[in-house]
Write a protein that binds this DNA or RNA. Structure first.
Lengths: 131, 131
DNA sequence: TATAAGTATGGAGTGTAGTCTATAGTCAAG
DNA sequence: CTTGACTATAGACTACACTCCATACTTATA
């Protein structure tokens, strides 16, 4: 797969793909198709990696953290324990964010209910809510 | 409340507070205590506002979006319908993020379970998972 | 074989969200 | 009334995540 197809497959701009490569987040092959092909070749696992990056990003990880996590994951590929440890670490982080999200949601729902009940001024205040 | 107390109350650096003021996210009073006090005075509602900013930020809003949302909220303060509309909009966004988060969590949990079962290579792949 | 479209590289530029520095004015304690 | 802590303002600087540009090479098409 050439970079333009890869861009279509991942819905990422070509420049962003090259940027990720420069950061070590993507590692396409510089394959020799027939002998001397100077172009990068992307595989299905690169598409997976790109999706994983997008996912981790929406979950609040920086590119630096994503790189570290993924290298840790790769480093521990021989050992199930290490792989599981990396996954558990991500799970813990996501559970944390989910808890914050749920707290915010219940605050907002509560506020809506009070306003609907016509008791706007008695509605829960952010002051009384520990984030 | 002076800015240093406010910084302690909100756990924000003084520079960040001033930055938020410059963006219109915080609007402390330039009160005349006794006649000519050139310092800004922060109230309890400013602490609330600062917490709300932090909350919205962890939920993925940019400062620009936060400003727009909060101004929309203020603009609709007379009308319960408009206030509720703003709150519902935030709720919708948070529910969306929560769904993405849950999908990611079940993917990760699934992966852990497959690895624990010793069937690592048969574990679910991100390819088969729509984010 | 000319031409257009695609690819690679390096480096400059952009927007966001701060963070720091320099300068100057203010206030409270000794 | 000086010293030290605090405050205000403007502007420079930083980190991050892109995004764009100039240049040059490669490949497919007419």
């Amino acid at each position: 797969m050439l970079i333009s197809e890869f861009a279509r497959a991942t819905d990422l701009p070509v420049d962003t793909i090259r940027f990720y490569i420069s950061k070590g987040l993507l590692k396409p092959e510089r394959s020799a198709k027939g002998g001397s092909n100077p172009y990068q070749t992307f595989r299905r696992e690169d598409v997976t990696a790109a999706r994983m990056i997008r996912l981790q990003q929406t979950l609040g990880y920086s590119l630096g953290e994503i790189l570290a996590l993924n290298e840790e994951y790769r480093a521990g590929e021989q050992s199930c324990e290490r792989t599981i440890a990396v996954l558990q670490k991500q799970i813990a982080r996501l559970e944390e964010r989910k808890a914050a999200l749920d707290a915010a949601l219940s605050f907002l729902h509560g506020k809506v209910n009070w306003i609907k009940a016509g008791k706007r001024d008695d509605a829960p205040r952010l002051e009384d809510y520990q984030c």
